[in-house]
Structure formats: C-alpha cells, structure tokens
Design a protein around this nucleic acid. Sequence first.
DNA 1: TCCCTTGCCGAAACCGGTTTCGGCGCGAAT
DNA 2: ATTCGCGCCGAAACCGGTTTCGGCAAGGGA
Lengths: 354, 354
Amino acid sequence: MTISDVAAELGLTKGTVSRALNDYPDISEGTRLRARRAAERLGYRPMGSAQAIRTGRCRAIGLVLETDEHDAHRPFLDLFLAGLSDGAAAEGWTLTVATAPVGAARETYQRLIDERKADGFVLPRTKLEDPRVELLRGSDVPFVLFGGHKTTEGCAWFDIDGADAMRQTAHILKDRGHTRIAYVGGSPDYAYNGQRQGGLEAGLAECDLALDPTLVRHGANNRAIGEAVTAELLDLPEPPTAIVFAVDRAALGAWRPAEARGLAVGRDLAVIAYDGDPEGAFTEPPLATWSVDWGQAGTILARMLIQRVLGAPVEDLRATMPAQFLDRGTASAVIPPDLLEREAGKPSHKGGDS
Amino acid sequence: MTISDVAAELGLTKGTVSRALNDYPDISEGTRLRARRAAERLGYRPMGSAQAIRTGRCRAIGLVLETDEHDAHRPFLDLFLAGLSDGAAAEGWTLTVATAPVGAARETYQRLIDERKADGFVLPRTKLEDPRVELLRGSDVPFVLFGGHKTTEGCAWFDIDGADAMRQTAHILKDRGHTRIAYVGGSPDYAYNGQRQGGLEAGLAECDLALDPTLVRHGANNRAIGEAVTAELLDLPEPPTAIVFAVDRAALGAWRPAEARGLAVGRDLAVIAYDGDPEGAFTEPPLATWSVDWGQAGTILARMLIQRVLGAPVEDLRATMPAQFLDRGTASAVIPPDLLEREAGKPSHKGGDS
DNA sequence: TCCCTTGCCGAAACCGGTTTCGGCGCGAAT
DNA sequence: ATTCGCGCCGAAACCGGTTTCGGCAAGGGA
C-alpha cells in the first residue's frame, strides 16, 4: 500500500495526496479530507525510509547504551526505554538503540550518524568530561544531555534536580534533630555528585548548620564501598547520627557495619539516599530515598530531542524535574530534643559494641 | 558524502560504484578495489533509508517490550540489548526498540511494520498462547521466538534448555540425599513452566524418584507468592527437604517462612532456583540457581532473525542454549545417609516452630 | 575477415515518497 | 472585455541509493 495506490483510488496524483496528508496550504479542504479518509480506509502509512530520503529525517531518536561499568546496573532501564518510546511514538517517531563498550562508543555513534539511523541522540549518564558531547557537536548532530556537563553551552539538557532534593534532605534531618550529618558521594566523574553535595550544603546553611569536612566521603557507588565508608564514619570519635548517600546502592552497605556496632539503621542511625532503587524497598527498615520518575524523564527527553531536531534553539530546551522523597523507615531515626540540649558533641547512641 | 560523490571522485557512475561495493560479478577486480578504497578514504557509508527504499530492507531488527507486568522486572535487559545490538552490528544491522502496554502491543507492531522501521522481530517472553505470533504470521513478517509456544510450526525459535537444567537439578539433589523434593512453578502462561517441571520429573525418574503431587505448586513468580507457597509447603505433615523454584524471585521468598520455623536455608532446607537474578548473590547464603547468558542469547537471536529475513527456512533456525549452574550456598543442605536409612517419611528437621 | 562471446561499464529506470513549478479556471477589479 | 489574482491541482524534478539493460571493446574461433 503506497501513496500511489491511494492516489489512484482517488484519481489524484501522488504529489497531491502527499501535500494533502502533510497539510500543505494549497490543497482544498475537501481534497484534504478525501485523502485522509482514503489513507485511513486503505491502511496506508508512509514508508519511513522513503520520506527520510527526501526530508533528511528518519524520525528516529538514537540511544547508545555504554556497557561495561559493572557497578552501573540499570534497574530502571525498562522504564526509561518505555518513557522514551512513548515520547517518540507520540510524535510518530521511533527509537533506535545500540550498545557499545565504553571505549568504542565513538564508532557506534558514527555508524548510526553516517547511515542515518537516527536524527539525534539522547545522551544518558553524561559525565562532566564527556567525549560524546564533542563528537556530536563536531558532527553537527542534535542531542540532549541527560545529566550535567562541564559546559552546557550550545547544549540542550535535562536533569533531575538532585541539588534541591539534598537541600530538602538537610531540612528533614534537621527537623528530626540531627546535627552531625555525613555525606557520602558517588563517582566524581559525574555532575550529580557535586550537585547533591552542594544542595546538601545549601540546605544545611539554611538551617544554620555546616557540612563537617571530616564527615564527607567520595567515590561510593556500590554496596561494598558503602560498607567500608559507613564503617569508617561510625568509627570516628564523633560519629554522625545521620548519613546521606548520593547513591542508593552505596546506602545498602550501611546495614552491616551499623549492626556490627550495635546500631539499628532507622532507629540509631538515620539514612537517606537517592535513586529510588527497588532493592531499597526490601531492606529492614526500607530505605528512605529520593526516587526518580525514569519513565517521565524519558518522555521529556524524547520530546526535547524531537523539538531540537525540528529546529528549536537549545536555549528553549533546558529543564529539570524534581525527585520525589520516599519517607521510609531509615529516615525515622530521631534525636530527642532534650538530648540535643544537654549533649555537647558526644555520640548519643553508642550501643552494644565492645 | 553520497555515492555520487564517490563516483565523481573516481570518474565512474554511481551505478557502477554501487555494484562495485555490493560485489556484483560484472565489475572488474581493479574497479572494485578502487571503489572500496575511495569509499573508505572519503568515509562514505550508504544511507540506510536510501537503500531500504529499493531493497525493501532497512536492516533493522525490531524489539517490542511489553510494559505492564509489574512483577516482570528485567534485571538483564541491558545485557540482552547488548547481545542483540552486537549480533545486529556484526551484520551491519541496527536495533529498533519500542515499548507498549501489553494490550496495545498489536498497534505498535503494526506501526513498525507499516512504516518499515524493522525487517523482522525478536519476540521476547513468548507465551504458550501468544497473539503476537498470529499477528506476525498473518502479516508475513519474519520473526524469531524467544521461548516456547503452543505450536512452533512455521516459526524460528530459540530457547534456554530449562528442562535439562531441571533434569540435572534432580540429580544434584538426589546426590545430596534429598528425596522429598518440592517444585514451585511460575506463571502457567509460559512454556518454561511446563518445561522445567517436566525436566525435573524426568531427572527424578532417572533417579528412581517421582515428583510428589502434594509437593507441587504453581503461579509463584514473585517474592510475596514465594513466601506464601514456602510457608504452605513447610507446614505440610511431611514437608520437603528441598524446594526447586522455577523462578529466582519466588525463591527469594523462601527465607522468611523458613526462618520463622527455625529452619536455615542452605542447611536445613535446600533451595535451587532458576534465572540467575543478581539479587540472589546477596542473600545469606547466596541462592543456588541456573543462570542464563542473556548477552549471548541476544546475539544468537539477532543472528537468527537476520538469517530469517535473508530467506533462511525456519527449519534451519531452531536452537537451544544450556543454562549454567551456580552452585551456591542454598543448595548445600545435605541429608546424611544414615538419616536417610532410618527415616520413614517423617520430617527430619522440625525446628523451632510452636 | 567476420561473427560470437565475454568482460566491463554507462545510461537510465526504479523504489516511494517530498517539494517545486507551472498552468488552468474562476471571480473580482479596472 | 481584459487583466489580475488566487485557489487548486498536475507534472516533473528530486532525494540516494539499487538494479536492469544495452553497448562498446577486446579476444577467440571458424
């Protein structure tokens, strides 16, 4: 079923039908309707490749997933893909997905670009220094960043407002009596790390508190490192009463060292993290965390990229989305006010450790 | 950089260059080489859409992921995609991914077919009764099943040999002294369920054992149901000493009811499951399970689909791959031989339940 | 010498759309 | 009665490839 078939059915030329279906102004309303009905009735849909050749657009958004990073598991990949797919489908676009070892990503992008398998790209997990940005900018291919970058000049971007989440985290912990609050960051290659720490510091400042440098750690992006760092923090002469993790998977490592020191997470030690990893729902108590709506993020990114391909200026294509706080058990550790008053900087909950 | 540019560079016509690059027999070896070198040097790559319009193939394999089933999380989706992508890239193909609510999948397929965004489809998680099969067969679109189907006539398919895994499971448990072995199946809509149960029965038969119908349960495909079923089994007058789960996520529900009855998983109760879910590595003790190499499965499926699109008969496109046993802690519960001899069908490990 | 292969390439049609250009027919303005 | 403008559509070029067809030149056999 081609456009010529539709045209023959109507006694028109294919050019006219094409213009009718694409809402050209030099087509009478009657003809436009007849064409639309005939296309519908005959089940005609334009072949993507055929229009791509003339319009230069294949109406596909590209997504290259970099495999390798073994600690970077993706529990939300399906949701993210669903969001992207929905956003694309809403405009009649589709999704071209490829994977590449982190080193060889360049060739993968290049092939997709050269063969015109995608009109632009969504860049997930952008790093502060990200070779993909230079590559795409150099090839003059539209793209949208998902995450921060050292310079966003000339870039469209989308991000979750992790800074604000952490700012609110400070208030939450302050309201529950905490003053000695530790921060455990993730991988320093990504912008989220600085953003979340900065947000926490800003929030603490609003509470007339400061982030104690001795209570700050970095590079914890998995459970094992999370355990080590938690142990380190709890063994300080003045250990924190609350630990804020930049990454859920690191926070999952808080239990063992805490229990080994006679502390119950959620009662003696408050833990708040970020990501909304589903595993956090199965801990005891469940992990309080800031969850990200990956589906909606995908939809927004798809929409932004399509706008970008269609010519929207990058300045109009920048947005953030708030994370949502899941106020679960690990955040309910409260420092009683009376304790606060008489305490003088000493740990208030030294428990059953030897 | 189009083929005309390459032709101009060489003083040839684009038709000649096209034939040279596509190994037509009426091109001299010298010209073929010159064309190849020039294309390489100029960085020419044929635009996919342009060749699709004439050849009828866009060199893309389609994958539609059905969202909805909230219990069907996909911890291996990234690996599977990587495998598919690799297999596709090896032949110069790409991957078109879409998602759809399970009910509306039909329209999604139809759109991809009509717009020629894919030359064929990989059908993940095929069910015994699967409307996708009829749809694609009716539209005469090539596809490869990943999983069993009520009838594989006219279908290319690939599957993991879960039956053989379960057959071996029977031997493993028998060798460790177990005779009262329970089977907890997953969703009956899928072929794997019957395959795994059948494999277990076959293996038991080889050990001169039979699967006791009172120790068989069905429909456990998540942790909550796994807990309920485990509790039920352990409360039987003659409880099993080993439970075989068709699905890891159901097996994760074995711990709570076991501990509530004073039984330690891996010591008093053997558990063997299937899937290789990463969460199983973090239980105490870690879950013994049959793991599937999703990456390689994807690569094979991609290769098979491409062959199918290129005209290979379905009879040549059928294969299975073995699962690999991860002999971890939960399988090490052993029934001592002496106990076996003097016991008379009574539970040997009734523990601290009231 | 003539004819018939054979190897090799140019020319052009073709795929299924989009887009440009030109012209017909009609009503309104001069 | 022209002329002009405008609405509307046909005709044809065009996009970047693939594929078919025809023909030229060299070589071989009679």
